[in-house]
Design a protein around this nucleic acid. Structure first.
Lengths: 136, 136
DNA sequence: TTCTCAAAGGAGAATAATTATCATTGCCGA
DNA sequence: TCGGCAATGATAATTATTCTCCTTTGAGAA
């Protein structure tokens, strides 16, 4: 399950620690864009001694090493995502639910559009849609 | 300059106070998506006695009354925008610069796309593009 | 214009999320 | 197996924001 993690860590000469593995797996398991707090709660079950600071540090380094992504929210809390493939997010206006929305046809449409319509003085790296609305 | 503000406040039976006017005008003047801190610094020049709590309270109520919008960032700091018309944001990956990007043709393209391709179990209210990249 | 009073503001304490510090631990290459 | 150094744990500090509570003030009524 954590093959990718271990590989990436080795590749960058970072140590493979049980904490890093546990945190990475927690984000995957929790899989609805957990907050640091969600992750801490989940991990404490199997790692009752893990430190909060460690969780934040590990999350940061996993983001830096492109094993996780940060998700923007309305609130001032960071959330994390283990799905690395290019996708968008559906934000529920009522609850705090955030779901992934992958749509290759849409990506194509947008990327075609920007190929034809460059933004002046700006080099686009990445385009994400924040789709707000309501689940039903 | 604050006609719209005063109108909206009156309309909702909210008091027109010098603090509200100053904060609203500050967001317009600073016009690059200022943080609360930016706003406080700016306002202190003319309103040295304004309280930080007031700035936050006013910003919240202006957002609630649709005179300002909150802008999501990578960081866990809120930023504010006085431009209400539908537009997207260009995020600079290096600096914290955020610029508006309005593009009616693009909006049309996306809204047409979603008219034809509904997202199941989800009612879309609004779609925003976060375009990250680099100014040059 | 003055009065009234709820709404708004000010000062500072409190909270919550995150970051920093630093002594200790443990991963991993030699 | 061992030693060095990166990573962790415990906890203090910081930062952005919210809350509390008392004072002030905008604006409708008299």
């Amino acid at each position: 399950m954590s093959k990718l993690l271990i590989e990436k860590l080795r590749e960058k000469a970072l140590k493979v620690t049980p904490q890093r593995v546990a945190i990475y797996e927690a984000v995957i398991r929790l899989n609805n864009h957990p907050t640091a707090e969600n992750i801490i709660d989940y991990i404490k079950k199997n790692h009752p001694t893990i430190s909060i600071g460690t969780v934040y540090k590990v999350l940061d380094s996993l983001v830096e090493n492109e094993l996780l992504k940060k998700v923007k929210t309305e609130k001032d809390i960071m959330r994390y995502d283990a799905v690395l493939s290019n996708h968008h997010h559906l934000y529920c206006a009522e609850t705090d639910r955030i779901e992934d929305y992958a749509d290759e046809k849409l990506n194509q449409l947008i990327s075609d559009y920007f190929k034809k319509n460059k933004i002046k003085n700006f080099k686009v790296h990445d385009i994400k849609l924040q789709i707000t609305g309501q689940f039903n």
